[in-house]
């Protein structure tokens, strides 16, 4: 506590360690070297845990194949039914071949989000690099599939035939812009939500040890920050599911556009 004796104003700031963004740092698991393309990092660890959790639920949980399901098998069936129904309802019956693809995205995001809520963990979905790849996968799939299935007819997605003729070019311009903004909003929505919540929790966590520095104001600040961490954590649990759901349902909506581009 050398700094505290030196300057008055800097004392409190130096005593409380604010590093809300440190949790997002990618570092090698073994050694201290630079992060190369194939380096085993904390990203690798938490993605591996995500994969293992998904295998645990969807493969090991259903290994008994019982007609009367166990608890874990019920959960796996619930996920299956939930996403399958979503694909069927939103994108239509002919989108069912893409169900495993949508299921992959949903389960990966869901488990990454929830594993990221474990204190001290690394949230892979809080990184733009990760969510951008997910969003670009959806965008490219949808665009390519649209052109393969409908050829140039896919462009009728942008030509709204139900609108009055003079409005159509303007609407087409807006539609094209919104089409290309899709992957951006799709990826930033997920990463932004995850990052913001985790950063806020970390900021409140930094306020929590206030009672060690000052028994005066600390008596108020410490309980309040702990309360705030609890509340935000509860919110984050909700957000973790909702963001996975939103990402998946938007994927289905985009799939519908590719399969049925005519308004």
């Amino acid at each position: 506590m050398a700094t505290e004796t030196q300057t008055g104003a800097a004392e409190q700031g130096a005593g409380l360690a604010f590093h809300p963004m440190d949790q997002f740092i990618v570092k090698p698991l073994f050694g201290d070297g630079a992060v190369g393309l194939f380096t085993v990092t904390n990203v690798t660890l938490w993605m591996a845990l995500t994969v293992l959790a998904i295998i645990g639920l969807m493969v090991l949980g259903t290994s008994s194949r019982s007609t009367i399901p166990s608890r874990i098998q019920s959960v796996a069936e619930l996920c299956y039914g939930f996403i399958r129904k979503m694909v069927e309802d939103v994108a239509g019956k002919d989108a069912l071949p893409y169900f495993p693809y949508v299921m992959t995205l949903f389960l990966f995001i869901l488990f990454s989000n929830f594993l990221g809520l474990i204190p001290g963990s690394f949230t892979t979905t809080s990184h733009i690099a990760v969510t951008a790849v997910l969003a670009m996968l959806v965008f490219l799939t949808v665009t390519l599939m649209g052109f393969i299935k409908h050829g140039a007819g896919f462009l009728s997605l942008f030509w709204i035939s139900s609108a009055p003729l003079p409005l159509r070019p303007i609407l087409a311009l807006i539609e094209v812009i919104s089409y290309f903004v899709r992957p951006v909003s799709h990826s930033i929505r997920l990463a932004g939500n995850m990052m913001a919540g985790h950063a806020v929790i970390k900021v409140f966590a930094a306020f929590a040890p206030m009672i060690i520095l000052s028994t005066g104001i600390g008596l108020i600040v410490t309980p309040m920050s702990i309360l705030a961490i609890t509340a935000i954590y509860a919110l984050e649990v909700l957000v973790s599911f909702i963001q996975a759901y939103v990402f998946t349902i938007l994927t289905c909506v985009y799939l519908k556009d590719a399969l049925h581009p005519h308004h």
């Binding site: 990618v26 393309l37 194939f38 990203v43 993605m47 690099a129 990760v130 790849v133 997910l134 996968l137």
Partner: peptide, 13 residues
């Protein structure tokens, strides 16, 4: 870090 993340993401997916 992005290359590393993308690589492991693709592997996981």
């Amino acid at each position: 870090w992005m290359g590393n993340q993308v690589f492991w993401l693709v592997v996981a997916l």
